[in-house]
Design a binder for these strands. Structure first.
Lengths: 205, 205
DNA sequence: TTGAAAACTTAACACTGTTAATTATATTTA
DNA sequence: TAAATATAATTAACAGTGTTAAGTTTTCAA
């Protein structure tokens, strides 16, 4: 049965190729410019062939999204070295802002577009990579409370607050809303100040 | 010159009709289902006629957005009655969450989609209704600091933090992300708890 | 070498936003 | 009132979208 294994491997290679080229298209032209036909042209297949490898466009977007999470997790590798929970949470926030601002197209896909979530529902699958990131956040918050540097509260409540805050910053920035509050050239600086402010404020006196 | 005035009035009536029907379409079918042809069918005009009244689809979206802000401001009318700045800020946040959850299609248009902002740039105009809402937020924050119930900080920094937080909550909820953190049936409750937590945390001891 | 299975493509449908050219309808002038 | 002119609205068309069904080519086992 070596032949069926090889075939399977080839199939996976085509799948990977499609996803790779899709993501290049994203980064180069932005979410709204990505179309099935353009992806097909890049991988040198007919547009309809993509439907032999993926259920629909949403499913392609979903898998791109997944690799966005991998990219994001890389940012957080060095995080374990920081022992102070508040400092670790702070650095996690800084990483989040930087990832979003440096990879707006990825961020859009992962947290703003509804297409990947629709695919997820269609597939009946779980949001494994996203869940992983959320678990990490909850654990840090829990740790901070255990060590008494955070006022005790429900973990989910605080985690939701922190996540919403950094997501709000990034998504408003990406969608050109924050420059209505401060001049465009001050947006990034003020975003970091807001994050600093939150961490300072929530730290137990 | 009575005749030219009447003509102008008629033109405005058609414009209003187009916008009204556009918004009905929004609420009924959602942002992604709104098309120039569907709007045209509703107002009983040919699709191309809309281009005699608006530059393009983005401009229609922009004006719909504007009336979304009007709707939002209505929620905040009773706000002036609350004298305690923290309590007022809190109620403003509650109103924001409720508006977003009750009018997801409007919210999408106002704060998530990029189309209205693109129109704004094309038109060279200002974000008057949005600016108004942001000014109100800044004033409350300033007031709270003046009255010593908030730790002094740059007003823009705190305003950005608060806005980002509530926007993060609403936009993550709308885009089905928050139910990855808590069960779907607990989302709304936990959103309010997060807001409560923030206000309690930032209040000067 | 033949026959079946897998991989891929072509043609088509029903949409999308938008422009140019054309027709119909008022309004103004002779 | 009739002809000329502006204004308003439409039809036809372009280039694009996601997706499905039917047909073709290629690959591989008997």
């Amino acid at each position: 049965m070596g032949i069926v294994a090889r075939k399977e491997k080839q199939k996976q290679e085509v799948r990977s190729l499609i996803l790779e080229e899709s993501m290049k298209l994203f980064v180069e032209e932005g979410f709204s410019k990505v179309s099935v036909r353009k992806i097909a042209e890049r991988v040198q297949y007919s547009p309809t062939t993509l439907y032999l490898y993926f259920k629909d466009k949403n499913e392609i977007l979903f898998y791109c999204c997944e690799s966005g999470f991998k990219k994001m997790l890389e940012h957080n590798i060095a995080l374990g070295l920081i022992s102070d929970p508040i400092e670790r949470l702070h650095q996690m926030g800084v990483n989040y802002l930087n990832f979003g601002l440096e990879n707006p197209e990825y961020y859009d896909l992962m947290f703003i577009q509804e297409a990947p979530m629709s695919a997820l529902i269609d597939m009946g699958a779980g949001w494994s990579s996203g869940d992983q990131a959320l678990e990490a956040l909850k654990m840090i918050v829990q740790d901070a409370m255990d060590k008494g540097v955070l006022v005790p509260a429900k973990v989910e409540t605080v985690a939701m607050a922190v996540w919403s805050m950094v997501h709000g910053l990034v998504s408003l920035a990406i969608r050109q809303r924050l420059d209505k509050l401060v001049p465009a050239e001050d947006v990034e600086k003020t975003m970091h100040e807001s994050l600093d402010w939150l961490l300072k404020t929530m730290k137990k006196a």
